[in-house]
Amino acid sequence: MSNELLTEVTYFVLAIFVGIEVISKVPTILHTPLMSGTNAIHGIILVGAIVIAAGADSPLTIALGLVAVILATTNVVGGFVVTDRMLEMFKGRAAAPKSTATR
């Protein structure tokens, strides 16, 4: 096993544990926004799409690169915006008790 592969596997295994640990206390009401947030994070594939698209020089690689970049960008931008819209709703409701207090 090459050194680089070994390092990659190490990152992979550690990231599994961090990923599980970091969200283990999520309340039910935040399940959907959290799913949407993680959905935006795997939009990191845009980095990969740009790397392969950058060197495109044949019709096939150009087509593949273009489609990959479009799909990945849609994932990133749409993912973060839609998550923000979801959480916007929560903010409105969380602020409400303050306004009723002054009545």
């Binding site: 599994i16 990923g19 969200i23 994070i41």
Partner: peptide
Amino acid sequence: AGTLVGASGSLL
């Protein structure tokens, strides 16, 4: 990033 999502997404 992919592994983080894979792991937390599975638990979720």
